Amino acid sequence: MNPLIDAMTSVSSITRARARDEISRFGQAVAIVLAEYGECRIPGVGVLKIVERAERKGRNPKTGEAIVIPARKALAFKPAAQLKRAID
């Protein structure tokens, strides 16, 4: 059971299988846009953006040993005002 697929079938006249396929294709398209442009604006939902996380000091929670966490890319999301209003 996937609530997003259920919502897609309830607001349109498509089958669960087609909804699953469309959502999957949308995810692939978002990944392509992020890889090429570094951000993806989804109207009414928000903006997904690739951000650089700097190297930082951390601690192994199991042993307490100090470690260096390497720099990496991460995904940030900023919700659209319309989405914020919908969940309030």
Rank of each mutant, 00 (worst) to 15 (best):
Q28M: 06
G58Y: 08
N2L: 06
E39M: 13
E39Y: 07
A19H: 04
D88T: 14
P79I: 00
G38A: 04
A81E: 10
K62F: 06
V47M: 11
T15K: 13
G64N: 06
A29M: 09
I5E: 11
R72A: 15
S12W: 01
P43F: 00
G38S: 11
E39W: 01
N60P: 03
R56G: 10
E52L: 02
A54Y: 02
V45K: 00
A86P: 08
P79V: 07
M1A: 13
I67W: 05
E65K: 09
E52R: 13
A19R: 12
F26P: 04
V33A: 12
Q28R: 03
D6A: 15
P3H: 07
I42E: 08
V45A: 06
V33Q: 06
A71R: 10
G38Y: 02
K78Q: 15
R56W: 00
F77E: 12
A17S: 13
L34D: 08
A19W: 09
V45T: 08
V51H: 01
R41F: 04
F77Q: 11
I5H: 13
S24C: 00
I67Y: 09
T9Q: 15
R59T: 15
E39R: 15
T63K: 04
F26Y: 09
R56C: 03
R41D: 03
G46P: 09
Q82C: 01
R85C: 04
E22V: 07
A76R: 14
E55K: 14
R41G: 04
A7D: 08
L75P: 02
F26M: 14
R20P: 02
V68D: 04
V11N: 09
A76V: 00
R53L: 13
K78D: 12
A54P: 05
A81N: 11
V47K: 15
K78L: 07
V47Q: 09
E39C: 07
N2R: 15
I32N: 12
L4Q: 10
T63E: 12
L34N: 07
I69S: 06
A7L: 11
L83E: 03
I23W: 04
E36I: 06
V30M: 15
I23H: 03
I42C: 02
V45H: 08
T63D: 13
P3W: 04
R59V: 14
